[in-house]
Design a protein around this nucleic acid. Structure first.
Lengths: 340, 340
DNA sequence: AGTTAGCACTCGACCGAGGTGAGTGCTAAC
DNA sequence: GTTAGCACTCACCTCGGTCGAGTGCTAACT
């Protein structure tokens, strides 16, 4: 007994119906609602086969069937293979990005917001990370008599800043001079490299110890794995729209997972190069998400950096819609970042 | 029939018990658990009076009584009046702030986190706002050949920045020169004032039109009510710990309110000068929070700026604990910001 | 051989009856 | 003014019965 064309069509109908209704679907429903030209009895036989093949589960003997993770997997693979993602969502996404935003964080937050409101699921957006950005300019701005702001501009246009304390009294011009010489030394290097050669620089410029030490620390802190910094999450409570989470206990564990940004980031973070990832139920590897699916896509900044956007919802997710929206969103973000 | 001492003690016992158990409390419970030296019958009579006075509600005729909003109000006023907030929480709060943080946002986020985990309710922290900060320094940092970063340092040490596009090609030194002259013109003024006199400056410095226009926009955008910028929220899902929110529909509406930062900020934002505000049930003025209470406290930065921290929980909130924790947290934040 | 109709069977959902127990209000006695 | 006692109320639980959606199996039809 293999998986023939007809079985597949029936399976697809079952999945479609279940995605819509979240109710176990019976043979009669399929035979009537999706006119297959087959009687319910025949469907029943096929469903029995599909269950044996592992594509369907039966919550109890006299309920309909529901698709298994394996079924969704098949369904999604098909979608991805065919590549026919209907794209009426494109306009919607684009419309939301008309007023373009200044800051990275704004963009990230906004993207998560849009993504969740378009899909009605929970959305997560990770900022771009990638090869160590290279320093382009470093500048010190006086903040008070004992503090200065360090602004570092990198080749990907990303700006990092921090306030450091300087024990000495330094005026604006002196700081500018120091900035210029530091820029000369550091331009073109990564933060990692900056940490390495920093002792030499410190040796050469013996004055301004306090300042240099502060700078050293800053480099140190920021050179590590580009710190999963800001993770934007949107539509946290969307999950409650779906009956599978009407159980409060489930909802609780899901929502508290959503609160721990770090964990979430590591779950979402894309490994590999794929345009899309779809992890279904147990494939997520997270017990709290045993009946969730995670769909992610990547975007890139045109400076070799990559970011991830993702949607989390019940396994009976509208994969078609979600994939298409993620695709569009990915494009938009890539465009937005690459000419910025 | 008035409110005598004994009635008050009974009411207090009822509130305490209800806060703990969330179950309507009956006369027998009070007479046994809180030994008043009175029989259940007597308590019953008193409770009947208290109900008539509007301090107790009876969900149905044969259940116990639950405290009304009016009762909580009385209870809280008493707490605030007596001022005896037990302070074993002080150490806990302090412990969480040992590693002090660099950036405003980090502090805010962390504070919300701590506050929610200490209270087990949902916590909200608003960044300090206050009288228009005055410009101390303005500096332009080149980002690319067509963009520059504007950094503005204000007297409260707060740094605002944005990237603006400059149509002209400007090198670092030129930008520095412009920065210096702009700083001279603008130092000591508020952003509001900067907007007003900006046309004159533009007229005087006719070159660099693109740049000046970008700057103008930036001032304009930031001069408004100090933009409820970053609102930190912690323990969103804590509300689900409490049986009054085991109804999914209620939880949903609560959580989606928590998602709209702006709205939340305006709800929490403290009017008036009071150290503490307690709004109970309908007093919140938000229908979604008909059976929530909001407790807020303020902290200040020592530069005339004030921020708000708040806790949102069910009306049967542990007011005592919450008030004391908020108080301590407020102090810690004030200290942290004032010498920064 | 595949398809279909028919039928017995299963099992969750829904409904109403009855029992249980916490809690009240009232009355009468202390 | 306080207390004991008692009848009464009402949410909640459990139990049995009915209903209906859905299945699996068998036998007949194409």
């Amino acid at each position: 007994m293999g998986m023939d064309e007809r079985k597949f069509r029936i399976l697809q109908a079952i999945i479609d119906d279940y995605i819509l209704t979240a109710v176990p679907v019976g043979s009669r429903t399929i035979s009537k609602k999706y006119d297959m030209g087959l009687s319910s009895a025949t469907i029943r036989n096929e469903m029995s086969d599909l269950e044996e093949l592992g594509y369907l589960d039966q919550p109890h003997v006299s309920a309909g069937r529901i698709p298994s993770a394996k079924a969704y997997r098949l369904y999604v693979d098909q979608l991805l293979h065919e590549g026919r993602l209907h794209s009426d969502s494109e306009a919607a996404v684009r419309a939301h990005f008309l007023g373009r935003m200044r800051q990275m964080e704004d963009v990230i937050d906004h993207a998560a917001q849009v993504l969740s409101s378009l899909t009605n699921y929970t959305a997560v957006v990770l900022p771009p990370t990638g090869p160590q950005p290279r320093i382009r300019t470093l500048q010190l701005v006086p903040v008070s008599s004992t503090a200065a702001l360090v602004v570092i501009v990198t080749d990907s246009g990303i700006v990092r800043d921090t306030v450091i304390r300087v024990s000495d009294q330094l005026d604006s011009d002196t700081l500018y001079a120091i900035s210029k010489s530091l820029t000369k030394e550091l331009a073109g290097r990564t933060l990692q490299e900056a940490v390495e050669i920093f002792p030499q620089i410190t040796a050469r410029m013996q004055d301004n110890e306090g300042l240099l030490q502060g700078l050293g620390n800053f480099f140190q802190e920021n050179s590590g794995a580009a710190s999963h910094a800001h993770v934007a999450i949107g539509g946290r409570s969307n999950i409650l729209n779906y009956p599978e989470y009407s159980d409060t206990e489930k909802a609780r564990s899901f929502l508290s997972l959503m609160e721990t940004r770090d964990k979430l980031a590591s779950i979402i973070a894309q490994q590999g190069e794929m345009a899309f990832t779809v992890r279904i139920g147990p494939e997520t590897g997270v017990p709290e998400m045993a009946d969730c699916s995670i769909v992610t896509a990547t975007y890139s900044t045109g400076h070799g950096q990559q970011g991830t956007i993702g949607v989390i919802g019940p396994t009976r997710m509208q994969y078609n819609r979600v994939l298409s929206i993620l695709g569009t969103m990915g494009h938009q973000l890539s465009e937005l970042f690459s000419d910025d």
